[in-house]
Design a protein around this nucleic acid. Structure first.
Lengths: 179, 179
DNA sequence: CTACAGATGCAACAGAGTTTCACCTTGCAG
DNA sequence: CTGCAAGGTGAAACTCTGTTGCATCTGTAG
């Protein structure tokens, strides 16, 4: 660990070091941001947070570092049903596959684990002859709180509403994570 | 059916009529294009093909019609792992859920059905308290043909190569569809 | 046939992500 | 410890996908 930073060496950082990838102040800030996030961040949010630690971080470097981590299979890319726009969200690749269930009205995201995921992946490898690299299941629907609202119907839902909303998601009364 | 067109009324068209949605020449051309496609098309490809039938179709109308169909749950949106760029692809919503398995090297797409999909959906509805509207599983990996090539490894794969390639995908020796 | 709600085309816009290139830094060799 | 080359960075310009505002046109109910 460098003497001029107070950041602990993150797991992503040591994974990259193992692979002989050069480490920089900017990358360290970006990796730490992704790892310490309490929810899924998009590139702009990663930039904003990483800048607070290391002011010199640039938009372009965030994209390049995300690309690096994706190529090494260390993070996964999510759409979260594009409820809040066209950006992609990122998370450290977890030990066990899980899916993301997003409320199309309030934007709440739930992570959910199931045995069916591993079974599905195995089926694909066997029956399609593919070597599976990345598997992503996303579900869009309406959470308990939003089902109660009359306007939460398929033909009238407000996809892409709240596009410019605050960084923090609106809660719906439920806990944000299951499993 | 209008007397001045040789197009048969498509299923999407009658679905929209049932819902009281106004039908136009442009929409008819777009619907027919989506329904007759032998593979998944993105907005630009839909525009190109629809223009051959109805020259007045505009980019914006394609996007608006896609939005209309999505809101009514008549088509599904796919990323196909963004192998060829950032565009989205569309397909008529099928009777049975299926997943899309995309080769990260050659771009081949296989559709695959599995019982695990319905089971997963049921689990989510029960355990998350969500009303599920749309479920999407996408898998990226390497097909049989591309696994044989030495450069098809995770850290060196050419994601986004062939971005400006011809409209028709490169085959890999395998059939394009299973299930 | 008429009126009008709603659809269209065009142009301008917006957001996400990429590329180019001159400059800077890391990590290794000596 | 120092020099140096490979590789990373920032800034600006760019590409691509998709959206919006507005004037005009058209499908459909009456």
């Amino acid at each position: 660990m460098s003497p001029h930073t107070t950041m602990t060496e993150s797991r992503l950082e040591s994974e990259l070091a193992q692979r002989g990838v050069r480490m920089t102040r900017q990358r360290r800030a970006i990796l730490a941001t992704i790892e310490s996030a309490e929810r899924h961040l998009d590139a702009a949010q990663i930039l904003r947070r990483a800048s607070r630690v290391e002011a010199s971080v640039n938009r372009v470097t965030v994209y390049r570092t995300i690309g690096l981590l994706k190529r090494h299979g260390l993070i996964d890319e999510l759409d979260l049903m594009h409820v809040t726009g066209d950006a992609h969200f990122y998370e450290r690749r977890p030990e066990h596959d899980h899916i993301h269930v997003t409320c199309l009205r309030c934007g709440q995201v739930i992570e959910f684990e199931s045995e069916h995921l591993a079974q599905l992946r195995a089926e694909v490898e066997q029956q399609c002859g593919f070597r599976v690299d990345v598997a992503r299941t996303e579900i869009g629907g309406y959470c308990g709180g939003c089902q109660a609202m009359p306007e939460a119907t398929a033909a009238t839902r407000a996809t892409r509403a709240n596009k410019k909303g605050a960084e923090d998601a609106r809660a719906c009364g439920d806990a944000a994570h299951i499993a």
